[in-house]
């Protein structure tokens, strides 16, 4: 059984074997100016798991993800991906940023956005050939968006935009999928479609990590939880790490006891 670590209790994390972890973070601190948003965080993502990164607003969830990917430069910290340095493993990582982080009036089409997922493979001068396009269409089909390939991205609804982002990540053909709030502001049908795709990835042995906001669905969607509030609060299976105690530690008074009881019943 994977060890659960409660930082708040014992003040240190157990040493673990990093060789097989798709994403291992050690001693990560990220600050904006003089204020640390993420402080000395260790995380060990288990291969083939679906992990939810949860925590209150401003807990540093997205920041942790971005720093792990080198999008933000951390103040300190070590990241290894599949036991190797991040820089050598980029091709095994797919990333879905927050939907609101881009300008959807950008002059581009759905298909072109998905093709961006192939940009590592295409390199600087590679021509986009028929088989690249059919792969992109296939990824769109997996998220139910194949009819929208030629649309300008500005004409899409929020849920459709999120599906396109997921299709682009699928096109990357990665082993580790990192998603930043994939369910934020999407309709119920899209949420179902996205979670179905993610569960299929898990069945194929891929690893999925998602920043997640909706505590009510944690137990349904994920098998592991990483609870964060600037520091790591807990990490482990849903049953281990998603408990009244850990939620209280992360959210403090923001969640009523009755709410917590209800949430963790399913866990």
């Amino acid at each position: 059984m994977a060890p659960v670590t409660l930082v708040a209790e014992n003040g240190q994390t157990e040493p673990e074997n990093l060789d097989h972890s798709p994403l291992a973070i050690r001693g990560m601190t990220v600050s904006y100016g003089q204020k640390p948003v993420v402080f000395s965080v260790d995380a060990t993502i288990q291969e083939g798991s679906m992990t939810a990164i949860i925590g209150p607003n401003g807990a540093g969830k997205s920041t942790l993800l971005k720093a792990a990917l080198g999008i933000l430069r951390p103040l300190s910290g070590h990241v290894s991906v599949f036991g190797r340095p991040l820089a050598t493993q980029r091709h095994r990582i797919a990333y879905v940023p927050q939907r609101a982080s881009v300008d959807w009036d950008f002059p581009t089409t759905v298909l072109d956005v998905v093709l961006m997922g192939l940009s590592r493979e295409l390199g600087l001068v590679g021509w986009i050939k028929g088989h690249h396009k059919s792969r992109a269409i296939e990824c769109l089909t997996r998220v139910g968006m194949e009819d929208f390939a030629d649309r300008q991205i500005g004409q899409l609804s929020g849920g459709q935009q999120q599906r396109v982002f997921l299709a682009r990540a699928l096109a990357q053909g990665a082993d580790l999928y990192l998603l930043d709030e994939p369910f934020a502001g999407v309709d119920a049908a899209t949420e179902k479609a996205i979670i179905a795709v993610l569960k299929t990835l898990k069945e194929q042995g891929k690893t999925v990590v998602a920043v997640h906001h909706d505590l009510a669905t944690v137990a349904d969607y994920f098998d592991r939880v990483f609870l964060l509030n600037t520091r790591k609060i807990a990490e482990g299976t849903v049953a281990e790490a998603f408990t009244a105690k850990t939620l209280n530690a992360a959210y403090g008074g923001r969640l009523a006891t009755a709410q917590i009881d209800q949430l963790t019943l399913t866990g």
Binding site: G70, I71, P97, V102, F106
Partner: peptide
């Protein structure tokens, strides 16, 4: 279009 994705 998407600097975060590009960096990742």
């Amino acid at each position: 279009f998407d600097p975060d994705f590009a960096a990742a």
